[in-house]
Each structure stands twice: as C-alpha cells, then as structure tokens.
Simulated scan of single mutants.
Amino acid sequence: MRSERVRLFQTLPHACGYYAERTAQNLVIDPAAPQLDRLYGPALERGFRRAGGHLYLPHCPQCRACTPCRIDVEHFAPDRSQRRCLRRNADLEVRECIAGYNAERHALYERYLRTRHPGGGMDEADASDFRRFLTAPWSPTIFLEFRRGARLLGVAVTDVCLTGLSAVYTFYDPDETARSLGTFAILQQVALARRRAIPWLYLGFWIEGHPKMDYKRRFRPLQIRTTDSWKTMSDITD
C-alpha cells in the first residue's frame, strides 16, 4: 500500500467506544478507492481494521490506548483454559459458510446485541444494519458457523487475506455463555489459518487493562504493533 496512491481521511472527533469520558478520531482509507480488495492485506499489516466497507485506524490526539494485535499462528499453543474450552465445545460442528444475511443469523445477531450491548446504539439492528456492518462487496469474508445439530449457536465473521485472517466480529447465543464461544471462535480461526497456511490472525485492537479488550493477551505468542513495526508482546510487557 503506497501512501502516495491512497487517500487517507481523518474523521471528526466522536464518542469513544471504549471510554465514555474520551473522544476518538480515526484515519480511514478512501472508501471509494477502486482497489480496496488489494489494499486490505497491506492495510492489516499496518494495523488497520475493517468495519463494514471502511478500513480504519484509531488516530486520537490525546490517546494511544488502541494497539493493533495479531496471533503468531505457527507458534500459537492453547493454554490450559483454552484447551478446556475446546473440550467443552467438542459437540459443536464448525462450518465454513458463504458470508451474508439470512433470517437465522440475523435473529441470533439481534439477541446477542440486545443482551451484550443494550442501549449501545446497535441493539435494534435490522437487515441492512447486519449487511452494512459485517460485510462489504470487496471484502474476502466467510462466516464460521458453530452448530449443535441444526441449532445455530455462534458466527465468527472472518476475513481471509493471503497473509492474514482478520477476526472481524463474533456473535453467539447469549444463553450459552458457559461455553466461552468468543474464545472458541478465536481458536477456530487459528485452526482455519493453519489449514490455509496463513501466518497471522489479526484480532483488531488490544487495550491494556480494559475489561473487554485485555483478554487478547492470553493468545500467545501475541504481537502488537508499535509505531512502525510488530513486536512480540512478551518482549515489551514481561
């Protein structure tokens, strides 16, 4: 991705999605650029993230809490808790599916948002919201479905680039919290990356100490992006 060929825009300040008392700004790659599909892999390498049809990177003047992170797929080994998660979900079937809207997925998505993010502005998502947030015409997206028999328990929205998978979003049955389906989704995405010989699984942003974001440090070896390079977290934080 050559900066002289790609326009970057900076958003206006808006409410931070992680800290209520802060404002946030993002850098966004020109959403009208005709080559977004080709830019996506290099953009992941530089710490960008996809939300709907936008590739963005937090760029807040007073805060650098959002740190891009990725799992080293080849060297990843599940810890004891993650192995228990795999055993707990051994009764599930994992399907690689074409991404897109259907009524079954949408019903699960609505239930998840209403339970996990009430009042957050996303909890009344209609069909167009589902499509707009989770997919884009140019994105190489698949849905990993987790089923127990015919029953859909979870969906891991996963973008597949040549040099990295991106864990875009996961939603699951809020009555099945004991299964730790969020952790299970990441473990299945690691397995998918290994099957396809893809070296990295991008997890979006790690925020140290944040109750909803700090869990990512458990997937080791985890790399985090500093100003201009990726470094293994243990080399920085241990």
Results as ranks from 00 to 15, higher is better:
Leu165Gly: 09
Leu113Phe: 08
Leu192Glu: 01
Arg194Gln: 14
Trp138Glu: 09
Leu86Ile: 02
Ala99Asn: 06
Leu222Arg: 02
Pro140Arg: 11
Asp159Ile: 04
Val155Ile: 04
Phe205Trp: 04
Ala107Asp: 14
Arg194Phe: 10
Asn102Leu: 06
Gln189Asn: 05
Pro140Met: 11
Leu153Glu: 12
Tyr202Pro: 04
Gln82Met: 13
Val160Ile: 07
Pro174His: 14
Leu165Ala: 09
Gly209Ser: 02
Asn89Tyr: 03
Val190Tyr: 07
Cys97Asn: 08
Tyr172Glu: 07
Cys161Trp: 08
Pro140Gly: 12
Leu152Asp: 05
Gly100Glu: 03
Ser166Tyr: 01
Arg194Trp: 08
Ile198Ser: 09
Ser166Cys: 03
Lys216Arg: 12
Phe133Asp: 11
Ala103Glu: 15
Arg87Lys: 13
Glu145Leu: 00
Asp129Phe: 13
Trp206Asp: 10
Leu222Val: 01
Arg83Gly: 03
Leu187Asp: 02
Thr170Met: 09
Thr170Cys: 13
Arg195Phe: 08
Leu152Pro: 01
Asp126Ala: 11
Pro140Lys: 09
Phe130Lys: 06
Gly100Ala: 01
Arg88Lys: 14
Thr177Ser: 14
Arg218His: 15
Ala167Arg: 02
Ala156Met: 01
Arg84Ile: 05
Glu96Asn: 08
Val94Cys: 08
Tyr172Met: 07
Tyr202Arg: 03
Glu93Ala: 15
Met122Thr: 05
Asp91Ala: 12
Arg218Pro: 05
Arg218Asp: 13
Glu145Phe: 00
Tyr202Met: 08
Tyr169Met: 07
Val157Met: 07
Glu104Asp: 14
Leu86Trp: 01
Leu92Glu: 08
Ala125Gln: 08
Phe184Asn: 01
Asn102Arg: 03
Pro140Trp: 10
Gln82Leu: 12
Ala193Asp: 01
Ala191Phe: 06
